[in-house]
Amino acid sequence: MLIPLYGFLRGDTIGLVVLVHDRQTMAEVAACLQEAASVRVAPAPSARVYVRGRPLEPSVTVAEAGLRPLDRVDVVQEAA
């Protein structure tokens, strides 16, 4: 199932709507948001997804994280 999420990349100036599949992992969600914001923020090789202030493991899927349509995710790039 496709789920629209409100994504906020740290360092960016605006929130974006990213459409992800509930089978996708947090690593893929982070990559998706970084790509969407790449015109303003250079993507980093690694980034962590935070939901309600808690970091999620990169392997956790959208469904496992219990994310619902229009939930907020924050993505923070990690130093290489």
Binding site: Y6, G15, A36, V39
Partner: peptide, 17 residues
């Protein structure tokens, strides 16, 4: 130029900036 839809505030209807 961005291609992904941006987000809006339900009250002011301006972008989430």
């Amino acid at each position: 130029h961005g291609v992904t839809p941006v987000t809006f505030c339900h009250l002011c209807q301006l972008v989430l900036c």
